[in-house]
Design a binder for these strands. Structure first.
Lengths: 341, 341
DNA sequence: ACTGATAACGATACCGGTATCGTTATCAGT
DNA sequence: ACTGATAACGATACCGGTATCGTTATCAGT
């Protein structure tokens, strides 16, 4: 492999065009005090030399990059993909560029401090503002616009986008109870996370509102992963008096329940009703399609982008907590309970 | 919203620690000619001031960023997600950072020149090398490492990763023919693309090898999208003598066939066999699960990362075309043809 | 006592842009 | 003819790091 020569700088362009670097810079930035003919000839030279200005040099001096940064744990998880889709569209619409950073593969302990470092380093050099998805650090210190999507802590120093976790589960519970279910199992998310806590509260209050006593055996502690959900589901379905329905704290969790149902030859929804949370793309394609709580992940991304761009442009954003509402999507994984005659 | 004060520079750290900026720089880069006590105290000051070095300034001078760039049309498409997963793991393993750029939302005509600009701008300022997925430009001019995944042109100036498109379809055809199918429809990809051409050849030669005459009616021209595939499938299934099986040039295309089958009350695989290409995540979750040609998208990403990192480190990479082999994944969307008694 | 090597650190030019201030030519208005 | 405004452009400091070269103190070896 050989590469073409590079390293064309603004000074090369200036020399070739017979003007000063100032004038070239003016042409690059579409300033208005340049004679049209001059601009034209400079542009021709730029084209001929294949010149592209260095983002590093530009941002070092002018402190504007027109780039929005995004920090996510990974770039391939379904949840992440949807968030990115929402962000991406809004950012592109406002003619900014999007630049994503994956923190995956890193030591979990070092992660928080690494993210903190990254935020500081990106802002003030390569990005004008940053969107963070599921931050691990409690606090970010930055002088630049920062917005968090689905933060794991309740209180943050910067605007955060969250969905109505409590109401989402609560609504799903009403639905299951209306179908006649009384023994409803719950598999939680990762206990430390705010979203997980709120969803559990939705479950508990859902039962209370219907006057159904809470049974500790029916609450299994998961962590949002499919693997852990499999263990939880085995546990719940091995009870002497097993649940007729399982409310899962995430779609991935629900798919774990699907797997266990299959291994025990339980049919969904005939023998077991299941409700998920997230409405990731896969949930519409499973067999049967999963009834789940849609948290408009895409919309969360869009809102995050909107806010960070407002902040970048110097407009204030009062509200620190921005809720995006959830909605129960009824598919085919639940059915009314048939009283044992 | 108020933000913390920022703008801590290396000079602030130097002043506070009572050393020169050179020494601070040495500490930052783990150079060995610094007294341990000095390094210790500098590190304490860095911590106390919340200092983070500016990537822009660093890369401007040292021309090393430890960042691999990625340019993709979008960040949420299933194909993209899998490529990114492969890249991400390899890049993280070698302690580089990954930075993704989405070109979506941009005017299609301006896209190629925009990408060309972006490559030039990223390299030599924020990244050490770049991986491009499905480039639109015929040629990129860059002095830095560049690798293309699944390029749309056959010949490129830089290493490219492609899958064995021809063999993949060919193998699938053998499978369908072995099941007894004789009238096999084909829905192509976007005709201009190299991958599409090779897949079509796999279909045509598959028929020829079995001595089955080619029927132009059975070849419908798609473009890899689900929407277009729906029209193609309607066309094929409306023939006087319709196909008993359809080979689709992509999984998305296959899902278009699924949709048309449902609207016409045709059962898959009882009434119609379908084979896809890609093996995206969804294909395992459809009803029925799709038999498809796996092109190890993740592995393609991993290989791309491996090559670009080798190039960055100055090691040569001879081969310009790197093939990743395909593999037929048999699920439940095909069945043997039953002779009409 | 002198030499040479080495450890530890400092001073300063420089990367490639933009911001800022200055200069020159031209011309309308009196 | 002189003044002031304006259009068009140039010279240069500067952004915040690192590379390069230099300096000083210390000490082992003769």
């Amino acid at each position: 492999m050989r590469y073409l020569q590079s390293g064309v700088t603004i000074r090369d362009v200036a020399r070739e065009a017979g003007v000063s670097v100032s004038t070239v810079s003016r042409v690059l930035n579409d300033k208005d005090d340049v004679a049209p003919e001059t601009a034209q000839s400079v542009r021709r030279v730029i084209e001929a030399l294949g010149y592209a200005s260095s983002m590093a040099a530009r941002s070092l001096r002018s402190r504007v990059t027109n780039v929005v940064g995004l920090i996510v744990p990974d770039l391939w998880h379904p949840f992440t993909s949807l968030v990115i889709k929402g962000i991406s569209q809004e950012v592109a619409a406002q003619r900014y560029d999007l630049l994503a950073y994956a923190s995956a593969g890193r030591n979990v302990n070092a992660l928080a401090s690494w993210e903190q470092q990254l935020v500081a380093r990106l802002n003030g050099s390569v990005t004008d503002g940053i969107i963070v998805v599921t931050p691990n650090a409690a606090q970010y210190r930055t002088a630049f616009p920062l917005v968090a999507v689905d933060p794991h802590q309740a209180n943050t120093d910067f605007p955060a986008i969250i969905s109505t976790n409590y109401q989402g589960v609560n609504e799903a519970m009403s639905y299951l109870i209306a179908l006649g279910h009384r023994r409803i199992g719950f598999i939680t998310g990762r206990p430390a996370l705010q979203s997980s806590i709120r969803r559990l509260e939705g479950y508990i209050n859902g039962l209370a509102q219907a006057g159904i006593p809470e049974d500790p055996d029916l609450i299994a502690t998961g962590d949002y992963t499919r693997a852990r959900a499999v263990e939880c589901a085995r546990c719940l379905l091995s009870l002497a008096n097993p649940p007729t329905a399982i409310m899962a704290a995430s779609d991935e969790t629900a798919f774990g329940v699907y797997a266990v149902a299959a291994e025990r030859h339980l049919r969904i929804p005939e023998d077991l009703s299941v409700v998920g949370f997230d409405n990731i793309v896969e949930s519409a394609f499973t067999n049967p399609p999963l009834t789940t709580v849609d948290q408009s992940i895409e919309k969360m991304g869009g809102l995050a982008a909107e806010i960070v761009l407002k902040l970048i442009q110097g407009q204030p954003w009062e509200s620190r907590l921005n809720k995006v509402s959830t909605r129960l999507v009824i598919r085919q994984s639940c059915r009314p309970i048939v009283p044992v005659s």
